[in-house]
Design a binder for these strands. Structure first.
Length: 278
DNA sequence: CCGCTGGCCTGCGAGC
DNA sequence: TGCTCGCAGGCCAGCG
């Protein structure tokens, strides 16, 4: 579900936990029906009494750091969400996986409907940085200024030449943080046909694409993320990103009013305007 | 190293 | 009303 901008928005909200000492942390009953969490409660209980020092974003991942070497790698998957509250009841948490209560009374619940999210404990930060999905992350799509020249250099790598640009944009080792919505939106903003292979793109188009990616992702952060299906802020509020989508799940192009085309590339849906994007 | 396939899961809306 | 089907912001393991 969440792409880089949504993860960034959640990260910002989670900063409220920095400096908080953990009174209680445990996997929920509900988590135990999944193989990947089964019997792991003691490993998480290790963090009881520890203080949360940092919550950092790498692409679509969070890394939780404490006043100890061990760290937690956390990914929201398609439906993962953190809910923060001062009350015990958190209405939105229908599929809670991890429950944290701090000394000052803040409650944080990791909720994940489809269970594609991740919570993995590593012995230390350098172990996480060697973990391939983290180690191989490319340019942070939210970096400012966006490194256009580096982007083009990476895009020009042989392995991408014959791939369709829409598929390439989802490769986290090229740009980390783009997902299926902002893939379509970035290509629409830069007026590029998603079916074009990288070698068919002109230098001009690559530059436009770099700019469009950066603009799209920045705008999404400012909107609080896109709430298309299940994404909510940790407060339970919806983001407003969906209000300005130009193509994603749209019927008509916001630009020229032509009928938007919906195609499938690498098993992911792409929306584009056949008139504007060529 | 690469690319492809299937797998992991639940919920929702469309269509019958 | 109730059922099935297809689809959903993502990633990973295993194979050739």
């Amino acid at each position: 579900m969440p792409e880089g901008p949504e993860v960034e928005c959640v990260k910002k909200a989670l900063q409220k936990l920095i400096g908080e000492k953990i009174k209680n942390i445990e996997l929920t009953e509900h988590s135990q029906k999944y193989k990947k969490y089964k019997g792991k409660n003691n490993q998480f209980k290790y963090f009881k009494g520890k203080t949360i020092k940092k919550i950092v974003r790498y692409g679509k991942y969070f890394v939780w750091e404490f006043d100890t070497d061990k760290v937690i790698l956390n990914h929201l998957g398609m439906t993962g969400m953190w809910y923060l509250s001062n009350k015990i009841e958190i209405k939105n948490a229908t599929h809670p996986k991890l429950f944290i209560k701090t000394m000052s009374g803040i409650i944080a619940v990791f909720n994940d409907i489809r269970n594609f999210g991740q919570l993995r404990i590593f012995n230390n930060l350098s172990e996480i940085k060697e973990y391939p999905p983290i180690k191989n992350l490319g340019i942070d799509g939210l970096a400012l200024p966006f490194p256009t020249e580096l982007f083009i250099r990476k895009l020009n790598e042989k392995k991408y030449a014959n791939k369709q640009i829409a598929n390439v944009l989802l490769e986290q080792k090229l740009v980390a943080g783009i997902g299926n919505i902002y893939k379509s939106e970035s290509l629409h903003l830069s007026k590029i046909d998603p079916r074009k292979t990288v070698k068919e793109l002109s230098l001009e188009e690559k530059k436009r694409l770099a700019k469009a990616i950066s603009q799209t992702l920045q705008k999404a952060v400012k909107s609080g993320g896109s709430s298309i299906n299940t994404y909510r802020m940790p407060s339970g509020e919806e983001g407003r990103g969906q209000l300005w989508h130009q193509v994603y799940r749209k019927q008509y192009c916001a630009n020229c009013n032509s009928k938007i085309k919906k195609i499938v590339q690498n098993k992911r849906t792409t929306y584009f305007c056949p008139k504007c994007q060529n």
